[in-house]
Nucleic acid binder design. Structure first.
Lengths: 243, 243
DNA sequence: GACATAATAAATGTATACATTAATCCACGG
DNA sequence: CCGTGGATTAATGTATACATTTATTATGTC
């Protein structure tokens, strides 16, 4: 008799999910992830304020979904430090004071230093990957032209996320995804002058060119400047502290 | 007439949650967080295997809870990179190959370097905080005596988490909490020789003493050794790769 | 017999309903 | 008038039930 084809393949996994290298971000995010992104954009755009309490039924109504996927979104954001919660006491947005901003920049610099090293090697092996950076840069320049600030910030993040992605370091990418949301919230509100908006794209284009050249040392210095520049702007803006 | 006490306090938040500095980990974790911890321990103890698919109904039955809090736990773990998922295609545990282990160590070193700097200052200001480290060390030594490996690993993590905590850097702490789960999974299985178990506590005690002294440079070197030692052990163990 | 297609089954995604907890309000007593 | 205690209300936590989608099996045709 022919041996029955059991569902044994289930036991040891049918396939490593999509072909993409593991830990990659889902190209087709589920409801919870979309809700999380919407909440972050809500803070970045000012619709939600740092420190504000998030009542589940209200938010669910706003986002036109049930409480179940919303709660999943809140758990994601809590794991990333965007919101805080205590059992039976609700959830509220974190606060972002000057000290927190310093912490974000410090951690970001440490992670991106790691990612940059891997990215340099990757671009050396496959220069074709630079095309993706160019595409993001083009979008950024368009956004800068129309002064669409949150779109500029998103392109900024996409640029650095792309670098983290090609670096092939999945752990750093995960950590950076969390950190990136903090960056979006904090600096999405800070870029508000036309001068700043126009300055961002050239900065990134310089970084891109250095990545293409592959001079590790020079890039490290440039990255320091690039990230710390944000910190300095924060200082200049003075009392602009977020609740 | 006496003005009615509206619920207006709700609008601008009644209190910054518990008194603890914001972003601190909840002392009384909810069901989802406990489930997430249970899953991680399950992997560390070998009850769950890397790469394995996690079917919600089965896991929920195992953990004696409904699918709702379990799904929240899975979202947390996905945000931390412990599991991967695609919409409608389920969730599976990540895999931990040698490369991944290197990434974990690299990121960990970067984050702990930041935390150590803050911790040194904190211990200089408040030496009393060292008592908490001593308490953890005592537990670690007890666990080492009885060769309880996963307990040793948890004490190891608690030790470093405590350092991150007193550093006051909430962002780094959040990122480290995620990373710590990777560390627990990867190295919870690696510490299996009696010699290694006995060596860990003295290592940490040395770190503690250096923190008390406050020599920043020496600690940085020691930390490098401390973390990279794990990486070297991994190399020695050769083909011991996890699915 | 092999391949394409349709039917079936299983697992995930979402919504609704109920239970539990904490915060608020009001009454009572000091 | 102020503090204390219990009742009320609102929000969170969980379970169950249903909808949707994917994977598997079965069927028919070449």
């Amino acid at each position: 008799m022919p041996r029955r084809r059991l569902t044994e393949k289930e036991i040891l996994a049918p396939e490593p999910l999509p072909a993409a290298q593991s830990l990659a971000i889902a190209p087709n995010p589920g409801m919870a992830e979309r809700a999380a992104e919407a909440i972050v954009l809500g803070v970045a755009s000012g619709a939600l304020q740092p420190g504000q309490r998030l009542v589940e039924v209200e938010l669910a109504k706003l986002l036109q979904m049930s409480r179940v996927p919303l709660r999943e979104a809140l758990k994601i954001l809590e794991a990333q430090g965007i919101v805080e919660s205590a059992p039976h006491r609700g959830t509220r947005l974190a606060t972002f004071d000057e000290r927190r901003i310093d912490e974000i920049c410090e951690a970001r610099l440490a992670l991106e230093r790691i990612a940059i090293r891997g990215a340099i090697e990757a671009y050396k092996r496959e220069p074709a990957l630079l095309a993706r950076l160019d595409k993001i840069l083009a979008k950024m320049e368009r956004a800068a032209m129309h002064l669409e600030w949150i779109e500029i910030s998103r392109c900024d993040l996409d640029f650095h996320r792309e670098i983290t992605r090609v670096s092939g370091n999945a752990i750093v990418q995960k950590l950076w995804d969390a950190l990136g949301r903090h960056v979006l919230i904090v600096f999405g509100k800070e870029i508000r002058s036309e001068r700043d908006a126009k300055a961002i794209a050239p900065q990134h284009r310089r970084l891109r060119d250095m990545l293409a050249d592959g001079d590790a040392e020079a890039i490290d210095d440039e990255l320091d400047q690039h990230i710390l520049r944000l910190q300095r702007r924060k200082s200049r803006s003075g009392a602009r502290v977020m609740s």
